[in-house]
Design a protein around this nucleic acid. Structure first.
Lengths: 189, 189
DNA sequence: GATTTCATTTGACTTATATCAAAAAGAAAA
DNA sequence: TTTTCTTTTTGATATAAGTCAAATGAAATC
């Protein structure tokens, strides 16, 4: 699955691909395990082979705000913390028992320096993330709570019914109660 | 200024830098000129030497929503449209008489293929943009109208008093009237 | 300087969503 | 099964921000 993801973006040769994959490690992590805490500097980038992850932060009043969901088949990270080695703005956790492939910052730098194509890959992934987050901003900035939920259903169809209501509500910038009411009305439509 | 921006991110040699700069063109554009329209595929990436730009889109009811401001000293583009050659989600316009340096997609591809370091530069710029937009989402998602305005003042101190009120209001996801009232109260503080 | 045009402010009223509190439903543990 | 704990739903009320409309102010044009 990771292999497919990589060659879809950049035409690596067989040898290059094997070299790159050998820098990753397979990790089995259990539900609710935290991969990075807020203010820590991220040392690893993850690819979600199986499972679901999310990033979140705590408001002053202690409430968790989900910032992003990471579905299987995607990279998962506090991207700016990993690439720029700055303190993470988020916690990163796994919401179910999951299988991840991880690569350390050191090994990633080796690959980025060794392969021109690897830099290209990293650029393409960054732009993909940028595009996705732009979609989220557009959905959240000027839409009603109901329209935001519709965005959620199209952007994360799998996730929408697999994670606690409160996580989704905070991701969409609304309260749990509001989301519960929206879902109820959605059925009556 | 463009030169400084580039060498700050990647240590290009003198020759590399000259080669890269020779692929850019200087453009003088007038206030309110539109650089890309929604649904067009972006052919150029711009660097703002002098002036201010913004990206925006139209809601169904015809209202303009500002998506981003581009201050002098930054790249300006519909990034996903330029790099992925997909239809732009936005209009891109200049808000004052400006001086821009532009590079076409074709020339950019030449540079990206020629220089490993150029790919790195593009990656770093993409991640910078990603970081900035993440900050915006955080500000907008769960803060009051007043707090959002405070974010605006810190992220775009120069711009906050140089562009029409309505542009800023829609950027922050509030109405013009609300922003006007916030500014009034801000003075009384 | 007067006039038209565009941008901002102010006021009165409405509404979507938040908040607070409690009940119901579902899941996990005993 | 029963008990306990967690998550979701429902109800009543409050409030921040939106809408509509008019007034004021500033800039551009005659």
């Amino acid at each position: 699955m990771l292999t497919d993801f990589l060659i879809d973006l950049v035409p690596f040769t067989h040898d290059e691909l094997n070299d790159i994959l050998s820098h990753f490690e397979k990790e089995q992590v259990q539900k609710n395990q935290i991969l990075i805490k807020e203010s820590q500097i991220s040392t690893k980038l993850y690819f979600v082979e199986k499972g679901i992850g999310r990033s979140y932060y705590l408001k002053q009043d202690g409430k968790e705000i989900t910032q992003w969901f990471f579905d299987a088949g995607n990279f998962m990270s506090s991207a700016d913390s990993f690439f720029q080695q700055t303190p993470s703005l988020y916690y990163l956790e796994v919401l179910e028992d999951s299988i991840l492939y991880s690569i350390t910052k050191g090994k990633m730098d080796v690959l980025l320096n060794k392969y021109h194509k690897m830099e290209k890959l990293a650029r393409l992934i960054s732009i993909q993330m940028l595009t996705k987050i732009v979609h989220k901003v557009n959905a959240i900035q000027f839409q009603t709570a109901r329209e935001r939920y519709d965005y959620m259903l199209t952007e994360f169809p799998n996730i929408s019914h697999q994670v606690p209501l409160g996580h989704i509500a905070s991701y969409l910038g609304m309260t749990q109660e509001t989301l519960s009411r929206i879902r109820k009305n959605e059925l009556l439509k």
